[in-house]
């Protein structure tokens, strides 16, 4: 509902933040996140770091799946391409992290775009299988090319440095992740109010109509794969350098499915949805573990069972969201806000 907000020109109407309080709200949120490391201990900062990385990856997957309507089960592998490409540059070649990070993103974009080529002919389940092939091939490549990747043993990655500062702890890395996450969010929000992003959504909603409006389906599908994989590559490169190690196990199909779960639960085709989903799916296992520790105390068995249940809980959540709220947490949150906007006159 736009009631109460009148815009006088198109620029204002086009703005992302056209509610009077919205700019203030964003400022408060940004200020909060800048101050966060001073308010909580390092453990929580590390959790927020993981959420930030997940947000970047989830927005990337949502660009492809939620906004362009192309399925992918290869997202975990594309993160791996970014992580390994950047890792090889910093650890093996000794290049600067600041070159390796965007280069890792570009490498993932290239490989992702390549594996997106079948999307011109394949849809739905068939495209899913093709991207599954991408996942398998890339994993295979990482494991069986030890000269480059050190194979199953994995690689140790150096900490990035900026000026004299070494980003080797949770707090210093926090600001790097925060900055990139904000950039990733803003870029995506802008993308979907301009020509290329709109073309993505047109391809998703009605590809035949899109083609007669002059949209080159092939170009935009492959571009969506590339952009999505760029985000994945950045997330992967960031993650690897944050953890300091990477190995093939970090980029398996389980990761692909975890990211699919994030966007389904958070909300397909919504940037905010990707953010909610990334928070939710990162926090859920932590909460489960803490609950298990709390109740399990002495019984090591209970902790074990709770952890084993984690995947079942993920699966159940995905099914419940698909059935009851296909638009995810973003839609639920929207409904809550709409309700309170008019409250107490909610009729």
């Amino acid at each position: 509902m736009d009631c109460g907000v009148f815009t006088t020109n198109y620029r204002e109407d086009m703005a992302i933040l056209h509610h009077p309080g919205a700019k203030l709200k964003v400022l408060v949120v940004v200020a909060f996140f800048l101050a966060l490391p001073f308010m909580v201990n390092a453990y929580y900062v590390s959790v927020v770091n993981l959420i930030g990385i997940a947000i970047i990856g989830a927005i990337g997957l949502n660009i492809l799946v939620g906004f362009t309507g192309q399925i992918s089960i290869g997202h975990g592998a594309f993160m791996g391409v970014g992580a390994y490409a950047a890792g090889i540059m910093t650890a093996t070649l000794g290049w600067s992290f600041w070159i390796a990070l965007p280069a890792g993103g570009l490498a993932a974009a290239l490989i992702g775009g390549l594996f997106g080529i079948p999307s011109l002919r394949l849809k739905g389940l068939y495209l899913a299988i093709a991207t599954l092939a991408a996942q398998v091939i890339i994993e295979f490549g990482i494991i069986h090319w030890p000269a480059l990747t050190r194979g199953p043993a994995g690689m140790v990655l150096p900490a990035p440095t900026i000026g004299g500062l070494v980003l080797n702890n949770d707090t210093t890395f926090y600001y790097l992740i925060l900055a990139i996450t904000i950039g990733a969010v803003v870029f995506a929000l802008n993308l979907f109010r301009t020509r290329t992003g709109r073309a993505f959504m047109a391809v998703r909603d009605r590809d035949l109509a899109a083609s007669v409006m002059g949209i080159n389906l092939f170009k935009y599908k492959v571009t969506a794969f590339a952009v999505s994989s760029f985000y994945a590559g950045i997330a992967g490169a960031l993650w690897g350098h944050y953890l300091g190690v990477i190995s093939p196990e970090y980029f398996t199909i389980k990761v692909s499915i975890l990211y699919l779960a994030m966007i389904i639960i958070g909300g397909l085709g919504s940037v905010m949805g990707a953010i909610y989903g990334a928070c939710f799916m990162t926090l859920l296992p932590i909460l489960l573990r803490e609950t298990a520790d709390f109740f399990g105390g002495g019984f090591a068995g209970l902790t074990h069972i709770m952890l084993a249940m984690q995947e079942a809980v993920f699966g159940l959540l995905i099914i419940l969201f698909l059935i009851f709220e296909p638009e995810g947490l973003a839609k639920m949150w929207h409904k809550v806000k709409e309700y309170f906007k008019l409250w107490p006159f909610s009729y």
Partner: peptide
């Protein structure tokens, strides 16, 4: 948005400049 998509062929903004707005 539907009508703006009708303008697609008359517009030029690409991926990068769109994302940076």
């Amino acid at each position: 948005e539907n009508l703006m998509l009708g303008r697609h062929i008359h517009m030029k903004t690409g991926l990068l400049s769109g994302g940076l707005f």
